[in-house]
Simulated scan of single mutants.
Amino acid sequence: MDLISSNIFLIVLFSSFIQSITGFGFAVVGTPLLLFFMEPKQVVSLMVFGALILNLMVIYKTRGKSDPKVIWPMFIASLIGIVPGVYILKVVDASNLKLCIGILILLVSLFMASNYVMTIKREKLATVLVGIVSGFMGGATSLSGPPVALFLMNQQQDKEAFRANLVRYFCLGNIATLLVMYFMETMELGVLRQGLYAIPGVLLGVWVGEKAFAKVSPKLFKWITLGVIFFCGTISVTSELIKR
C-alpha cells in the first residue's frame, strides 16, 4: 500500500466514523482532506462511491427507524432545487455564493447551539421547502447536507430517527448523483482502483462508529452533529477567503 492509498484509507475511515454516528459528514470531512493529494474529479467520484456503500450499511442497521413521509417529499423537492442551483452559477459568482452560504450555515448552527427552536406549524410544506433549499445548495455549492440536518434537529428528532432519515436521504442523493455522472460521462472510473482501499476504511469506520453511537448520549450527539455542521460552514468560508 503506497502513501496515497494509506491516506485514502485513513481519511475514509475517519469520515465513515463521523457519518455512522451523525448520519452525515462523510463528504464534508473527507473531501477537503482528499483534495490535498487528489484531483477534484477523482475526489468527487471516490466520495460518492464510498458514501453509497456507507449509507447502505447504515440503512441496514437502522431499518424500521426512518420516516418515509419525510424522506421522499424532501428528496423529490431537492431534485427541483438542483436546477436553479446549477443555473445560478451562470449569473452569480460561485465564490461569493459559497462564502455567503457558509456564513449563513455558521450563524444558524450557532442559533441551534443556543437551544433555539423554531416552531413550524406546516411541517409538510417545510419539508418540501427544505428539500428545495438542499437541492439548490447542492447544485450551487455542493453543500446540500446542512439544511436537512438543521431542519431535523429543529424538529427535535431523537438520535435514532435523525440518523435513519439522514442516511436514507443521502443514499437517494448518492444514487441520483451516480446516474447523472454516468450519463454525463463525468465519473472517474480509474479512481475505483484506489476505491478498493476505501472499502476497508468504510467497513471499519462504520463498525467503530456503531459501537460509539450506542454509547453517545442525546446531548453529546447534538453537539457532535452541530460540530460537523459548524465544520462544514467553516471549511466553506475559509476556503473562499484563502482564494482572495
Rank of each mutant, 00 (worst) to 15 (best):
F9C: 12
L10A: 13
L10K: 04
L13V: 12
S15F: 03
Q19P: 09
Q19Y: 02
S20Q: 04
I21S: 05
T22H: 00
V28A: 07
V29A: 12
M38D: 04
V44G: 00
F49A: 07
G50P: 11
G50M: 06
L52F: 08
N55V: 01
L56Q: 02
L56H: 06
V58P: 05
V58Y: 02
I59Y: 02
R63V: 05
V70N: 14
W72S: 03
A77E: 01
S78K: 11
S95P: 07
N96G: 10
K98V: 01
L99R: 03
C100G: 05
I101W: 05
L104H: 04
L106C: 15
S109P: 11
F111D: 10
S114A: 12
S114N: 11
Y116A: 12
T119V: 14
K121G: 15
L129S: 08
V130F: 10
G139N: 06
S142R: 13
P146R: 00
L150S: 03
D158K: 00
A164Q: 03
L172T: 02
V180N: 05
M181R: 02
M181P: 10
M184S: 15
L189E: 15
G195D: 07
L203S: 15
V206D: 10
G209R: 02
F213W: 12
P218G: 04
K219A: 15
F230S: 00
E240I: 14
R244G: 08
